[in-house]
């Protein structure tokens, strides 16, 4: 996209670091969007008789987001130990800052 539109003229700017930060931001957005979509499907009644989140839906959303983080961590650890068992060094830590 055009995100790096100005970065090529910039004297003294470290494009590598900006790219890395950008990359991290895209990744977090991706995880967030998938989480929003999953927890919406799990918790929100789609008959839309009214515009409010019910008490039950709200509680479900809070737990769903928390559980999604746990699942994210566990899947990351599983991939790491699979990679290590396969002889590689794993990925050091969970593949994202979350």
């Amino acid at each position: 996209m055009s995100f790096f539109g100005g970065s090529r003229n910039g004297g003294g700017l470290n494009n590598e670091r900006i790219e890395a930060a950008m990359h991290e931001m895209e990744m977090i957005t991706d995880v967030f969007n998938r989480m929003v979509s999953s927890c919406h499907a799990k918790c929100v009644n789609t008959r839309y008789a009214d515009a409010e989140l019910s008490k039950g839906e709200s509680v479900c959303v809070d737990r769903c987001i928390g559980k999604y983080f746990e699942a994210n961590k566990l899947v990351g650890e599983t991939l790491n130990s699979t990679a290590q068992a396969a002889g590689g060094g794993g990925m050091g830590s969970s593949p994202m800052g979350m």
Partner: peptide, 21 residues
């Protein structure tokens, strides 16, 4: 990675009476 988390979460997590797995 992120699609795998989504896929596995969708298949495996359906009980939201608790936050913990």
């Amino acid at each position: 990675y992120s699609s795998l988390v989504e896929r596995c979460f969708t298949s495996c997590c359906n009980d939201f009476t608790s936050r913990a797995l």
